[in-house]
Amino acid sequence: MTRSVPWQERLSAGTEAVQEEVIRWYQETPHGQAYVPNMIWGTLQTEAYATVILGQVVDFLGVPDDVPAGVARRMQRQQVLYDGEHHYDVVLGEQALLTSIGGPEVMVEQIDRILRDIELPSLTLGVIPAAAPVDMLPTHAFNLRGDEAHVELVSSGVDVTERSELDLYREAFRRLSDAALHGDDAKELLLKARLFWSETRHG
């Protein structure tokens, strides 16, 4: 079964209500997986980075502007990384480290945040190098939580629960994770991106 809900409907009351829903999803999902090719996974975003992202959402969709409240809830959801009861396998594309969200200052702070948390026991983080061979392309961002895959399209959020489709998402995640660098190798990509943004910041 696939269920699609337009973003303008889901966000008709603003961003805070949806963030509260996402908090419940994460709290109820002890082990989740996420693939995000061109932005930072929401649960690792800094306050400044999240403010830019949610501001873009509000501007694009024309929904009520409650960005500070939505950001506060997004920060609240990050407690699952520190409560000792959850684990998340996350794969980013290297492009996620190089897409300018808020400019160099925001990006340096954001990458420092990831470097700080990359060794959390609750997190397994991989980064796919831009030139890496990937046996699963092209594909869009998606989250796996329990018996559901969540996909965020331009116009809507899609929840997939059909077993055969979920098996494809799980296999896709396995292939993407196999293409990613982990541990010290992932840190090297993070440090490379940090150097880029630091040099950009200083002209």
Rank of each mutant, 00 (worst) to 15 (best):
V58Y: 01
G62E: 00
Y88R: 10
I53R: 00
R73T: 09
T51F: 03
Q45W: 11
V90N: 06
Q45A: 15
M39N: 08
V80N: 03
L81A: 06
Q78H: 06
A50V: 02
V91A: 03
Y88G: 12
D65A: 03
L81E: 01
L44N: 03
L81G: 00
N38C: 15
Q76V: 12
P64S: 10
Y88I: 15
Q56C: 05
Q56A: 06
E85T: 11
A50D: 11
V71T: 05
G84Q: 13
V57C: 04
V67T: 04
I40N: 06
E47C: 12
H87R: 11
L92W: 13
T43A: 14
Q45M: 13
W41L: 13
D65Y: 01
Q76C: 14
Q79D: 07
Q76P: 09
G70V: 04
R77K: 10
G93T: 04
L44G: 04
A50P: 13
G93C: 14
V91P: 05
M39L: 15
Q78G: 08
D65W: 02
A72T: 14
N38W: 13
V80F: 08
Q79Y: 05
D89M: 11
V91I: 07
V71E: 04
V71K: 05
V80Y: 08
A48P: 03
L44Y: 07
A69F: 03
W41F: 15
Q45E: 11
V63S: 07
I40G: 04
D65F: 01
R74K: 04
V90A: 09
G42Q: 07
Q79H: 12
D83R: 09
E47Y: 11
V63R: 00
Y88L: 14
L54C: 00
H86C: 12
D59H: 01
V58A: 04
Y88P: 07
V57A: 03
A72I: 10
V91S: 07
A50G: 12
G55Y: 03
E85Y: 09
A69M: 06
H86S: 12
I53V: 13
D66E: 03
Y82C: 11
Y49C: 08
A69P: 02
V80A: 07
G84K: 14
D89N: 15
F60V: 10
L81I: 08
Y82W: 11
V91G: 04
G55A: 02
R77H: 08
Q78N: 01
G84V: 11
G55W: 01
T51N: 02
V80E: 02
L92Y: 10
T43D: 08
L92D: 13
N38Y: 06
V90P: 02
R73Y: 10
V80I: 15
E47K: 04
L44K: 01
V67Q: 03
V90I: 15
Y88W: 14
L81F: 06
